[in-house]
Design a binder for these strands. Structure first.
Length: 372
DNA sequence: TACGCGTGGCA
DNA sequence: TTGCCAAGCGT
């Protein structure tokens, strides 16, 4: 329900210092009261009133970076079952962590997760730092995550600001400045929503509000506990916040992937540890370049003397990364039983591919290459 | 500062 | 179909 846009009587300045905005002092309490009635039950959340386990909070916060609650759920359970505490994770092999992370995306998170667990185990005796500053020094923990763990696990009086909270706050105060330039202003305004205690609940309340009521499109303002005091709603243009600078989309890149089958095995290699899909498993392939032709891609096939000719599969595999779309032509070949893998490559049974650290784009390639 | 970094769901 | 979006971080 979008009310008609009324002429705005007030300039669109943030209401930072406008005492005539009656009721704004009640927001922290209104927020917590709403949270106590409507909080979501999530696997990593402690029961109401109980302190959360820092390990679970940390693990969930890393997984939730730019990732939906729904996608994280099963991964969180898997990780917790296999590595119940930080010392167990710190003792694990990085390859095992990458395999368990496969499919969740943003794989540098998995490497940093493991590195962080090692540091906590060895340099902090297995105990997470309980301050924002201490947490911020750990790999994979930035300003948001440090504040979130400090508030949720250690009850520190700080307000983490994620995408949800940016949206809620930019609407509450009708912040006209565009992201990301508006981040400092939004951070300061968000801090005004903290009460004298329960910082972690205040943060999670804002996140739940953003996820369920103050949604990106068609926010359910009628159900919002703060709707009497929302500048954007008063103007009627709440769904135009937050303001954002236009983003550019990357150019299409093309390449070839080579699915080499030896009996019931397929040829794979590991990608370099850093960069795109760092440390993950892939089938050999050409470079991924904008404007590349098929012939150029085919010329980069792995050197296998036993391959008489490559068979090009019909169609292409498409995949869209955050910053560019990708089209891969898939070539296949069968080789004799004792063909040796080229340097740096290895044979993996097709039946165990599920356990490999295969990113989804490579799963698509393998399915396309092995399909009938 | 701005860009590189995955994936799946949604309208 | 296409673009947007989701509990950001590292460089």
């Amino acid at each position: 329900m979008v009310s008609s846009a009324l002429p705005s009587k007030r300039k669109s300045q943030p209401e930072k210092s406008q005492p005539e905005n009656r009721g704004s002092a009640e927001r922290p309490a209104q927020l917590l009261a709403w949270y106590d009635r409507h909080r979501r039950r999530l696997p990593w959340r402690a029961p109401a009133g109980q302190r959360s386990d820092p390990y679970r909070v940390w693990l969930s916060e890393i997984m939730l970076q730019q990732t939906t609650v729904k996608a994280v759920g099963p991964y969180f359970e898997k990780f917790l079952a296999r590595w119940p505490e930080v010392s167990a994770l710190g003792s694990a092999d990085l390859d095992d962590v990458l395999r368990m992370w496969a499919g969740l995306g943003y794989y540098s998170r998995a490497r940093n997760l493991h590195a962080c667990a090692v540091i906590v185990m060895r340099a902090h005796a297995g105990v997470f730092p309980d301050t924002e500053e201490g947490l911020r020094a750990l790999p994979g923990i930035g300003p948001y995550t440090a504040a979130a763990i400090a508030a949720i696990a250690f009850d520190r009086l700080t307000m983490p600001v994620d995408g949800n909270i940016e949206r809620v706050v930019s609407r509450l105060f009708a912040v006209e400045e565009a992201l990301p330039q508006a981040k400092p202003q939004i951070q300061a305004l968000a801090a005004t929503l903290l009460g004298p205690s329960r910082a972690g609940d205040s943060a999670q309340a804002l996140m739940d509000l953003g996820a369920t009521i103050c949604t990106p499109k068609k926010p359910a303002c009628a159900l919002c506990p703060l709707n009497e005091n929302c500048a954007a709603r008063e103007r009627g243009d709440q769904d135009t916040f937050p303001r954002k600078a236009a983003k550019k989309t990357g150019a299409l890149r093309r390449g070839a992937a080579f699915v080499v089958v030896r009996g019931e095995e397929v040829l794979v290699q590991s990608r370099p540890a850093k960069g795109l899909l760092g440390g993950m498993t892939e089938v050999p392939g050409s470079e991924w370049l904008a404007g590349q032709e098929d012939a150029a891609a085919l010329a980069q096939a792995p050197e296998l003397a036993d391959v008489k000719r490559w068979h090009r599969r019909l169609g292409v595999v498409t995949h869209v990364f955050t910053h560019f779309p990708l089209e891969l032509v898939v070539y296949t070949a069968k080789v004799p039983a004792r063909t040796r893998a080229p340097n740096g490559m290895r044979w993996v049974p097709i039946a165990t591919l599920d356990g490999e650290a295969l990113p989804n784009v490579m799963r698509k390639v393998v399915v396309h290459g092995l399909g009938e």
